[in-house]
C-alpha cells in the first residue's frame, strides 16, 4: 500500500484488512517485521535501520521468505527534487529500491491518492 504522505493510506488499509494487528515502523523492533501481520510507516522503519548503519539489501527477499502474508504501508518519497543532504538522498533512493523489489513479490499493490486506492498490481 503506497502513496504520498497524508493521503489516508493507513486508514484505507485498515478498512481493507479490519481484523489484523499492526506494528508501527517508527517504533517497532528490528525483528518484529518478520513475524507481524502488518506494518505502517514502513519508510520510517527503513530510515531507522539506515541510521543505525544496518543493511536493508536483504530485507525484501527475507520478508518474502519468512513473512509472505505481510501487509506493508509505505510513503512514496521519490517524486521531488533530489535532496542536498547525502543521507536523505540515500534514504530516498533506498525506499524506492526496497519497495520496488517488494512489489515484485507482492500479490497486490495499491496506490492511495486523496484517500482513494487504485490497484496497480493484482
Amino acid at each position: 500500500m503506497i502513496g504520498g504522505a497524508y493521503q489516508g493510506k493507513y486508514e484505507y488499509a485498515r478498512r481493507m484488512y479490519p481484523d489484523i494487528s499492526w506494528i508501527d515502523g517508527q517504533t517497532c523492533e528490528e525483528e518484529d517485521i518478520y513475524s507481524c501481520s502488518a506494518i505502517f510507516h514502513f519508510h520510517s522503519y527503513l530510515e531507522r535501520m539506515m541510521r543505525q548503519g544496518k543493511s536493508v539489501r536483504e530485507l525484501a527477499g527475507r520478508l518474502a521468505d519468512e513473512n509472505p502474508d505481510i501487509v506493508i504501508v509505505s510513503d512514496e518519497i521519490g517524486y521531488g527534487i533530489v535532496p542536498v543532504d547525502r543521507f536523505e538522498r540515500e534514504y530516498r533512493e533506498t525506499v524506492g529500491r526496497v519497495c520496488t523489489e517488494l512489489a515484485v513479490y507482492a500479490d497486490k499493490v495499491f496506490r492511495v491518492v486523496c484517500g482513494i486506492g487504485t490497484k496497480v498490481k493484482g
Binding site: 504520498g4 504522505a5 497524508y6 489516508g8 518519497i77 527534487i81 542536498v84 543532504d85 486523496c114 484517500g115
Partner: peptide
C-alpha cells in the same frame, strides 16, 4: 499533489502539507 517527496521540509511546510492532504481526502 505535493506529498510524494522527502526533502527536509521545515516543520511549518510539513504542517501545510499535512493540512492540504487532509483537505484533499475530505474533498475526494
Amino acid at each position: 499533489e505535493v506529498h510524494s517527496d522527502v526533502n527536509g521540509y521545515s516543520r511549518e511546510t510539513e504542517n501545510y502539507r499535512k493540512l492540504l492532504g487532509k483537505i484533499n481526502c475530505e474533498l475526494a
